[in-house]
């Protein structure tokens, strides 16, 4: 009894309800769905064990490989474009004393909107009849008359652009929070030494916000794996798999093709990849990196 009422265990008691909910809602279903990767389950009928057949088929699947490549591209795009813009804007915002809140709100606003709303706005904007497409056609610029979401060469980048447009405001806010925590004396000392704005950013701001910065990179890498909603709504993975990503591929197999076993194999690989990424960051932390 004394053992149970020990003070150090009290926090655990409060966490128990959440742990139970996670276990029943996420943990057990996840383990069960991972187990399905070794079956040919259609989602309804009998479950037959097929060993590693799904994985063998998967490694030979050209569209799965294409989806992986698109996820890698997506990750690279998000690790560069929104991060650079957000860093720059956050740094510039620290110099704005009046009206800063307006900019913060304006940048963050798309992040507060539902993905469906964001997507519809951009779809209408580039609509070939009612949107910019119609306008460009009317002034004779045929090259811009088609929607970038329906053009094979641009669909992935167009979807990434809309997702990035919604996401970068979030990065601005977290970078800005980090920048405000930097000791002002460091900047004053740099000013005395005659440092330029860029030098202050490079040698003071960036090192001081490193934990937040590395954290943002980690979440971008992890969030780029299950990217789904923007692709699904804007392009559906098309045209011709040109914007297909792994999560959308999983969805199609699980819920359209009645191929749940195969979809589970895709999910298992996604899970292993995320664990691998988290493991790398954990290892870096153990090695003394400030992240």
């Amino acid at each position: 009894m004394n053992f149970l009422s020990k003070k150090s265990y009290i926090a655990w008691y409060f966490v128990i309800p959440v742990v139970f909910i996670h276990l029943f809602v996420i943990g057990i279903p996840s383990i069960l769905s991972l187990a399905l990767c070794l079956t040919d389950w259609s989602g309804l009928g009998k479950i037959n064990y097929v060993g590693f057949e799904n994985f063998i088929e998967l490694f030979d699947d050209r569209y799965f490989k294409k989806a992986i490549f698109h996820n890698i591209l997506w990750t690279i795009i998000f690790l560069t474009v929104p991060v650079c813009i957000a860093l720059m804007c956050a740094y510039l915002l620290t110099g704005i004393k009046r009206g800063q809140m307006f900019y913060r709100l304006a940048f963050f606003f798309p992040y507060m909107l539902a993905s469906v709303v964001n997507c519809q706005i951009w779809k209408y904007l580039f609509h070939p009849i009612h949107g910019l497409g119609g306008f460009f056609e009317s002034i004779g610029i045929e090259a811009l008359a088609s929607s970038p979401f329906t053009t094979k060469e641009t669909s992935l980048y167009a979807a990434a652009f809309v997702d990035g447009w919604h996401f970068w405001g979030f990065l601005v806010v977290i970078y800005l929070t980090g920048m405000y925590q930097v000791d002002n004396h460091l900047y004053e000392a740099a000013d005395i030494e005659g440092a330029s704005k860029f030098q202050k950013f490079r040698y003071i701001t960036l090192p001081m916000i490193r934990p937040i910065f590395i954290f943002s990179l980690m979440i971008i890498i992890i969030w780029s794996v299950p990217v789904f909603d923007y692709v699904y709504i804007l392009t559906g993975g098309g045209p011709a798999y040109s914007s297909e990503v792994v999560a959308n591929y999983l969805y199609t197999h699980a819920f359209v093709r009645f191929n749940v076993g195969y979809a589970s194999a895709v999910g298992t690989l996604m899970f292993i990849y995320v664990i691998f990424i988290v493991g790398i960051f954990g290892l870096l932390r153990k090695l003394g990196w400030e992240i």
Partner: peptide, 15 residues
């Protein structure tokens, strides 16, 4: 269909 393949992909029921 709707002038081009790209337009066909971009046009829906109401359009």
């Amino acid at each position: 269909w709707s002038g081009s393949l790209e337009n066909y992909y971009a046009i829906g029921w109401d359009d």
